[in-house]
């Protein structure tokens, strides 16, 4: 029996890819909300729009990822494979954290 720390494939690649897509969706939605919030005022510069607070984007993405996991029954499936939430958390966190860090670094540079 092989019990590694990570969930078995294809779940690692599926979760990472899906995490990146959901981060993109959450970011697009939050940017839209920021734009709509400033409709009657001077629109904020692009740089300001791109620098959404990561402390908001990352937890929201994580929440959406968890809901999506439940919607697809994968939480139950992975639990039956011996993979609990503590092992899933790093995989769910990795895409939004990395992408958010990359955007922040690019904009500041």
């Amino acid at each position: 029996m092989k019990l590694s720390f990570l969930p078995p494939q294809p779940f690692v690649s599926v979760l990472l890819r899906r995490g990146a897509l959901l981060w993109l969706g959450v970011r697009a939605l939050m940017t839209l909300v920021a734009l709509l919030g400033s409709l009657h005022a001077e629109p904020p510069p692009l740089r300001e729009l791109l620098l959404l607070p990561p402390l908001a984007v990352v937890p929201v993405t994580l929440g959406v990822e968890w809901l999506d996991l439940r919607r697809r029954n994968e939480d139950l499936l992975l639990a039956n494979l011996g993979v609990g939430p503590a092992r899933l958390l790093p995989l769910l966190l990795l895409p939004p954290l990395l992408l958010e860090a990359a955007v922040t670094a690019l904009v500041r540079w």
Binding site: K2, P8, Q9, V14, L77, L81, G82
Partner: peptide, 20 residues
């Protein structure tokens, strides 16, 4: 219990990677 976008073979592959 099944992930809707994966095939049964992919589920079985994952299970065998985990438990032999």
């Amino acid at each position: 219990l099944l992930s809707p976008d994966l095939s049964l073979v992919q589920h079985l592959d994952a299970l065998e990677r985990r438990f032999g």
